[in-house]
Design a protein around this nucleic acid. Structure first.
Lengths: 193, 193
DNA sequence: GTCTATATAGAGATAGAC
DNA sequence: GTCTATCTCTATATAGAC
């Protein structure tokens, strides 16, 4: 495969990633993607044979992006609690996207599950990546395995819930209050020892 | 409209309600609904002219069901905190449905928003019904307006988050732990006075 | 590697007989 | 009020020229 081919392929994945997020997977058509990429529908099939193949590539792309983000948080702070607060603060950082399109991780897994799509488990892996990273940080900060797991799942759920409700009601004061409350809650988990 | 006609119409709405929940709105076709109802696609259009009309009828149906549930909680308990705990415990009561299909309120609003569907705001009204009911209970239990609002949105978000994460990772211990933690948190909001 | 043309299936929606 | 037949559009996917 030539360099240009690889670039087109990458472009297809990046644009599909964005469109799947904003419009949903099923609602996004090949024509839709082809139009934005600037290629014909026919050419499209030279790069990906099925829509599921694009979806899998998008999920892999998201996993790579997630890993880079987690690595970035780790290199930015030595304090594990600060690192975990980076996770909490995605809600603020991605505020306007979440307001319009929700959380990319939660909305994709939910959609694929309703479609009974084979890629559902693949999408759940992104959830698990976040969870495992959070568990690692909490263990490193002194928490036992069980507690680290419980706190991590709690953080994931809180984050998902805030994203869903914010997406529905668009109340920014609610978002701020929940993020503050989450940070305070996290601090409390280490004060009580 | 004859009695039989009204019954068919009701049947269409109830079956669509279920299918939209389990498969998603867009993923559910007329043929799909007609097949389960046991009528032909053509007959279908005698009752509903567009898919959006069915969706609106389903949302109204869900609003009515929700109102009946809220009324039921109110008549079952005089203590407002017990009533609010009924809300928290839907997570347990609807455990297996949530495990497979997520929260019907959250997943529908999320989907409609991605489809940029005109019925999105209609669907958000169900969220608002829950919120207003929770606010009323909390005010009745002595909370000021602002705090009642904040606690209600927090409960909604927690509930949504648990549903989304449970749907993705299917961990029942997580679900139980979160429901317990939510109940404890609610009690604490009234102990601290 | 890109294109046009086309196959095939299913969607939402309509017309009109009974 | 229910049916069959049909229209139109768009979807995924393929074939083959350049």
């Amino acid at each position: 495969m030539s360099i240009q081919g690889a670039e087109t392929q990458k472009k297809i994945v990046e644009i599909s990633d964005d469109l799947f997020y904003r419009q949903g997977y099923e609602h996004t058509s090949f024509s839709n993607i082809a139009e934005v990429v600037g290629i014909s529908r026919g050419n499209f099939y030279h790069h990906f044979k099925t829509k599921t193949q694009i979806l899998d590539a998008v999920i892999e792309f998201r996993k790579e992006k997630t890993q880079r983000m987690l690595d970035d948080w780790e290199s930015s702070f030595t304090d594990e609690i600060q690192r975990v607060k980076c996770f909490i603060n995605i809600l603020i950082k991605n505020k306007s996207k979440i307001k319009h399109y929700g959380c990319p991780v939660g909305t994709l897994t939910t959609e694929l599950q309703k479609l009974d799509h084979s890629a559902h488990e693949h999408a759940v892996e992104i959830f698990v990546m976040f969870k495992n990273w959070l568990v690692a940080q909490l263990k490193s900060a002194g928490k036992k395995g069980n507690e680290a797991e419980q706190i991590s799942l709690h953080l994931l759920a809180r984050s998902q819930g805030v994203a869903t409700v914010f997406n529905a009601i668009k109340n920014e004061r609610f978002l701020r209050a929940e993020v503050d409350s989450l940070e305070t809650w996290l601090d409390e988990q280490f004060e009580r020892v």
